[in-house]
């Protein structure tokens, strides 16, 4: 097995506006199984970072435990990272985010790390609307421990072992909308055309952006009886809408006939243009977003795309009114009010 990739890249490989090539966003060679959906998800992240010309040293990657949580080793090799305890990625991300709100935070988790051991952490990160890009690589099984059903496995779905799962599944997207996430999307590792813009939209969003990536486990859960196999997902996928992500710096060239698109302006000034396919679907309306998910589920379909976005929910820093500056830049003068101020406070208490 190869332990590294050849160092050569395409001689005409493009550079982004920050002067980086795609190679500058790569990490070590993957040690996951050949064909793992996580590798595609990883590459979608690399692609999104490259296209948005994000400076690698302005990114922090956080993860928990699991196949998915290994992936930060495989992208953004020049960024900051913290591989934490099982299910505890949100805590570590919260701490880091509180210390420095200027970095872009990418939290990588899996269905076990999120929907089982880390459920409590997940819920509270959502509730606080932490400014975090929470990416869950969801394959419906515990791949690292030989493929047991996870909490997101659909009832009746059977992996390689062949025993149908008797329990009902947790829909992480519905839960995220319910618990206060301000950007919720679902993608499929096998469809980068949709996934890359979803990730770019998340990066532009301020607040908790949750992306549930259905990412098949080729080794344990890519069977004909599984609802998280490449084939099943391809056959049952339904997109809410197609959309264009237009970064702030880019001139708006596309023209949208009136009434055919819905415009969402992100905090950083980027714009998401949603092409309306169904007037009943309004991704800025929380109730309708949940309805859409439930309706498609009833039809046996898997709804993907941008599911819900709300630009009006404040992120944690704004809620707690914390300093705008990274803590490491605060000096004694900023932190210590001085003797005069202390005297004043003391006087007020007398």
């Amino acid at each position: 097995m190869s332990t590294d990739r050849p160092s050569f890249r395409h001689p005409q490989a493009a550079r982004n506006t920050a002067g980086f090539t795609r190679k500058d966003y790569e990490g070590a060679i993957s040690t996951l199984c050949a064909g793992c959906g996580h590798d595609s998800a990883t590459n979608a992240i690399i692609q999104a970072c490259f296209e948005l010309a994000i400076e690698p040293h302005r990114v922090a990657k956080m993860s928990g435990i699991g196949c998915s949580s290994k992936t930060p080793a495989y992208f953004l090799g020049r960024s900051h990272g913290f591989n934490s305890v099982h299910g505890r990625m949100p805590s570590v991300a919260t701490g880091a985010n509180m210390a420095n709100r200027d970095l872009l935070y990418i939290g990588i988790s899996g269905d076990g790390d999120t929907a089982s051991i880390g459920m409590g952490q997940f819920a509270h990160a959502l509730r606080r609307n932490l400014n975090l890009n929470y990416i869950c690589m969801n394959n419906g099984c515990y791949g690292l421990t030989k493929g047991q059903d996870s909490a997101t496995a659909d009832r009746g779905s059977a992996g390689k072992k062949g025993v149908p799962n008797p329990y009902s599944a947790i829909d992480l997207c519905e839960l995220a909308i319910e618990l206060g996430a301000s950007y919720v999307a679902r993608g499929f590792s096998g469809d980068k055309q949709q996934l890359v813009p979803l990730i770019k939209g998340a990066f532009a969003h301020s607040g908790l952006a949750f992306i549930d990536i259905i990412s098949p486990c080729v080794t344990f859960n890519n069977t004909a009886t599984s609802t998280k196999s490449y084939e099943y997902v391809r056959e049952h996928i339904e997109a809410t809408n197609t959309f264009d992500f237009i970064p702030l710096q880019q001139e708006i060239l596309a023209h949208y006939p009136e009434g055919t698109s819905q415009e969402v302006v992100m905090h950083d000034g980027s714009i998401i243009h949603l092409h309306k396919t169904d007037a009943g679907r309004d991704v800025t309306n929380r109730r309708k977003a949940v309805d859409s998910l439930e309706e498609e589920k009833a039809k046996g379909r898997l709804l993907t795309g941008l599911l819900y976005v709300n630009q009006n929910i404040m992120e944690t820093h704004d809620i707690i009114n914390s300093t705008l500056r990274p803590l490491n830049s605060l000096t004694e003068a900023d932190l210590c009010p001085g003797n005069t101020a202390l005297q004043k406070i003391n006087a007020g208490l007398r």
């Binding site: 990739r5 050849p6 160092s7 050569f8 890249r9 395409h10 490989a13 060679i29 993957s30 050949a34 064909g35 793992c36 959906g37 590798d39 595609s40 990883t42 590459n43 590792s189 096998g190 980068k192 098949p216 080729v218 890519n222 490449y230 084939e231 391809r234």
Partner: peptide, 14 residues
């Protein structure tokens, strides 16, 4: 082929 994109993702020369 199951169109998992693994070859696309790993190819150093795209």
């Amino acid at each position: 082929c199951i169109e998992c994109d693994s070859c696309v993702d790993i190819c150093p020369e795209s």
